[in-house]
Each structure stands twice: as C-alpha cells, then as structure tokens.
Write a protein that binds this DNA or RNA. Structure first.
Length: 279
DNA sequence: CGATTTTGACCGGCGC
DNA sequence: GCGCCGGTCAAAATCG
C-alpha cells in the first residue's frame, strides 16, 4: 500500500492515532482488554501489543458489547453472522433462527459468507508471549480451521475459531520469524460467553493473574513502532520485508512499558516456566 | 463415534 | 488482466 503515507511510527502519538483512530484514544489497556471480555485487573493488562478496529465503513464497527444477545450487536452481527451460517455437519445445530431465515437456499451461502467477511473487521489485538507452546490456553476452547505459510516467515500461521457456536471470535497464532521462541497471538472479536474449562488439563482463564506470566508474556515497548507497523501492514494486506531493528527489550528480556507500575514489574519479573500443560 | 486437526483447494483483495 | 498472498472452506485423517 502507500507506505509513503505512513506516519512516523516512532512517534508515540502517531501510531496511537493510527492504531486506534477513534476508539482507543486515551484508554488504558485494561479498558481495551475488558472490551474483549478479558476482565483483567490493571496489574495484568500491561503490554497489549495492539488493539484496533478495522472497518471499511463506519457503520460496520462492531459494538463493544457481546454477541447475539445484544440488540445493538445484532445489527452488525447480522452482517457477520454468515460466518456461522454453515455450522459443520458434525456440529450440534444451527443456533440462531434469524440466521437461517436470511441464509435461504436462493443465495449462495458461500458467497454471502465471503462478502460478509470482507466487510467486517472486528476489534483485534495482538500480543507476544515467549512460550514453547503455540496454542496458549486462555480459558476458551478453540478449533483450528486453517494453517497457512506466511511470506517472510519460516513458520506457518494457524487460524482458530472459538468452539462456541454463537461466538465468532477468531485468533491467529504464529511464531516470530526473528525469534522462534516468541509466539504472536492475534485475537479478533469478542467472546459472548464465559471461559470454559479444558477437558485435558487444568482450567486457566484469561482472568487468571498467572495467565500472562505463565507464558513468558512479553509486553512490547509502547510503542514498538516496527511491530505495530507490521500489524498495520497485515491488516492492510501489505507485506513488509524491510529489516527491523531488534525490539527494545531490556536485559532480562522484558520491555519497558509506559503504563507499567511496580506491581506489574513484579509480575513480569517473576517468570514462571511452562507449567500450564497438564498431560 | 463425535470432536478436532490436517491440508489442498478456493476465493477475494490488492499491487503491478 | 494477471499473479501473489492472506484467509477460509471442507473432505479426509486422526484422536480420545
């Protein structure tokens, strides 16, 4: 795209404006996370890598309230809902009668689905964790629906959808090509339900204060212009192969976050090794 | 046997 | 218009 028009992303206010044109201005990360139903306390919300909405037209902005139960959300979700028009044959049932009524046989569901997809971009945020495990257990259950090799990355990107049939939240998981130990997780959308337990292991939710620390959560610098730029490029469909300087991490591998407070530093400093996987 | 993962095919957006 | 690329679908394979 037009990189020449990109503002100087080394400037804090510049990228803030770019990332969060009108939604996340002056909001702290706890606000942002709560919009994603991640009701973390301030001490747990450091270093949200990015959070932004990307909509092609203003009316497509997905409300911050949850899914189909919200009348306000229903307007936008009607447009998005085609994503779940075709529940897998193995899936229990179609859930929303309004969906079925609009997805009659006359219109190719596939095309309608695609159109809806491209129109709506839900809120997204991304963060990096240092973990051997690609798929972080965040309290929700995810079903993988795709994997793609990404250009300029030696690691594939995995695509997951929330297994809750009413929930349209997706996430992408990929490893940093520069540091394979870093997992970049991008969430899109908001859960409309509670977290669930895991059948094969312990229950850990994003509400758990150990969630981030358990995965060597790597808060980014605020800003880390290069990473944000990359996210923006991803969002805008632009590939960037330009070399980026190493992230401005501290000696112990952490990154200075402007909003961090002493208690947060304590949390981050107290790195807990991989302990979440219960065989 | 149901749920989940894998994987090739397909589609749309975008730059040239 | 063409080709590249990211994202999704869906059938087959695998898992528990």
């Amino acid at each position: 795209m037009n990189n020449s028009e990109n503002p100087d992303l080394t400037n804090d206010s510049a990228w803030r404006e770019l990332i969060s044109p009108d939604f996340y201005d002056d909001r702290d990360t706890s606000d942002i996370l709560s919009d994603f139903n991640w009701n973390l306390h301030a001490t747990e919300t450091v270093g949200v890598l990015s959070s932004f909405t990307s909509t092609s037209t203003p009316h497509e902005l997905i409300p911050t309230s949850s899914c189909s139960s919200s009348a306000a959300a229903s307007v936008a979700l009607t447009e998005v809902s085609t994503m779940s028009h075709n529940p897998p044959a193995t899936s229990s049932s179609s859930e929303d009668p309004t969906e079925n009524s609009t997805a009659s046989a006359a219109i190719t569901p596939k095309k309608e689905k695609k159109q809806a997809q491209k129109r709506i971009r839900q809120q997204r945020f991304a963060f990096m964790t240092k973990s051997d495990v690609d798929n972080l257990e965040d309290g929700y259950r995810w079903r993988k629906y795709g994997q793609k090799a990404v250009k300029n990355s030696s690691f594939p990107r995995s695509y997951y959808r929330c297994t809750n049939s009413r929930c349209t939240v997706k996430k992408r998981v990929e490893r940093s090509s520069e540091d394979p130990s870093i997992v970049i997780t991008t969430y899109e959308g908001q859960h409309c339900h509670q977290t669930v337990g895991f059948p094969r292991g312990g229950i850990l939710t994003a509400h758990d204060p150990h969630f981030f620390t358990s995965h060597h959560y790597l808060p980014p610098p605020l800003p880390n212009p290069y990473y944000y730029q990359e996210l923006l490029h991803q969002r805008d469909g632009v590939n960037t192969s330009s070399p980026r300087p190493p992230q401005s991490t501290t000696e112990d591998g952490h990154v200075a976050v402007s909003s961090i407070n002493p208690s947060e530093e304590g949390l981050l400093g107290d790195i807990v090794p991989q302990t979440m996987r219960n065989p």
